[in-house]
């Protein structure tokens, strides 16, 4: 599968402040790429640079296998987008807005407008002026506008914002369909993992302008560590017993009363027996999975996913 977006050392500075710093990302054809990071991490700026709305101060961008040059705009015919809040010509109807978009994009097939509106379930609102639309409807209409020219690449900046749970569900289905049936590559930014983890093939984590990790979600899922969580009123004693009596070194104290034991050969039963025999007051002991959320949160906080947990406990 070839790459549709490739950036190398992409940088954007505003004066001395680097809002995007040396970002090298790779999005493949036909995949959904979840671009994850807290607010202000630089997600929108990267997307704007891909669209040519913001000019990079360093690095380079390759789209559809060709290097992006200043002022070039031919590639924009192949991109659909929704950046930040959806904007429209308010006095025009939904259909007129989409028609105008198709005209500017040089896309002659007007039937695609109806199809896009059907996909986002906005049929029946074609003749309504956009100024009467709710935030959720505007969001859906913006997605319809982005896809109505059947682009090869879709850039969606926080597309779930303002949607109700039903709308979110609908959009997830739409994005999957666009990838699976239309072969579209979709770059979706979000500050919430649950929004993208169900649909993304790859996740790129960005914080403070830096791309911290780019990883296929399947491999993260496969490697998310299993651990045993011990809840006790005497964590210090538990730590002592684990190290000195039971020979367990790969653990981490995650709270005042909790410890996590990673990758131990001792099972849950042996651990609880060992702790109880050494008079450690145990409130609970459970086998759990490190969640994806924790994995990415660790990366953003400067750690290294669950690997960091292992090392910290060692």
């Amino acid at each position: 599968m070839t790459q549709i977006i490739r950036t190398q050392m992409l940088t954007k500075s505003y004066g001395p402040v680097e809002s995007v710093s040396n970002v090298s990302m790779n999005v493949r054809r036909g995949e959904i790429y979840g671009f994850l990071g807290p607010n202000g991490a630089g997600k929108s700026t990267v997307m704007k640079m891909l669209l040519g709305l913001v000019r990079p101060t360093g690095g380079e961008i390759e789209l559809f296998g060709e290097r992006l040059l200043p002022g070039s705009n031919e590639h924009l015919k192949r991109i659909g987008h929704l950046i930040e809040t959806p904007v429209f010509y308010e006095r025009l109807t939904a259909e007129q807005n989409l028609e105008l978009h198709c005209e500017y994009m040089g896309y002659p097939n007007k039937q695609a407008i109806g199809e896009a509106l059907r996909l986002v379930q906005l049929v029946g609102t074609e003749n309504k002026p956009v100024k009467q639309f709710s935030l959720g409807m505007r969001q859906r209409l913006a997605i319809a506008r982005a896809i109505c020219t059947r682009p090869e690449l879709l850039l969606l900046d926080e597309p779930i914002n303002g949607l109700d749970p039903e709308g979110i569900q609908l959009m997830r289905g739409v994005f999957r369909r666009l990838r699976d049936e239309w072969g579209m590559a979709i770059l979706i930014s979000s500050h919430l993992l649950p929004e993208v983890e169900q649909i993304a093939d790859t996740i790129g984590v960005i914080n403070q302008g830096r791309l911290l990790r780019e990883v296929p979600l399947d491999s993260v899922r496969a490697s998310t560590t299993e651990f045993i969580e011990i809840s006790t009123s005497d964590a210090a004693l538990a730590a002592f017993v684990l190290t000195e009596k039971l020979g367990v070194t790969n653990f981490k104290q995650t709270g005042e009363r909790t410890l996590r034991v990673y990758g131990t050969e001792l099972g849950q039963e042996a651990l609880s027996k060992g702790l109880i025999l050494n008079d450690v007051p145990i409130e609970s002991i459970n086998r759990r999975h490190h969640t994806l959320e924790e994995y990415f949160f660790d990366i953003i906080k400067g750690g290294n996913g669950h690997d960091a947990s292992r090392q910290a406990g060692a």
Partner: peptide, 14 residues
Amino acid sequence: KDNTMSLLFAYPIS
């Protein structure tokens, strides 16, 4: 002001 210019400038037109 209403940001439709960023929409317009993302079209494949000079």
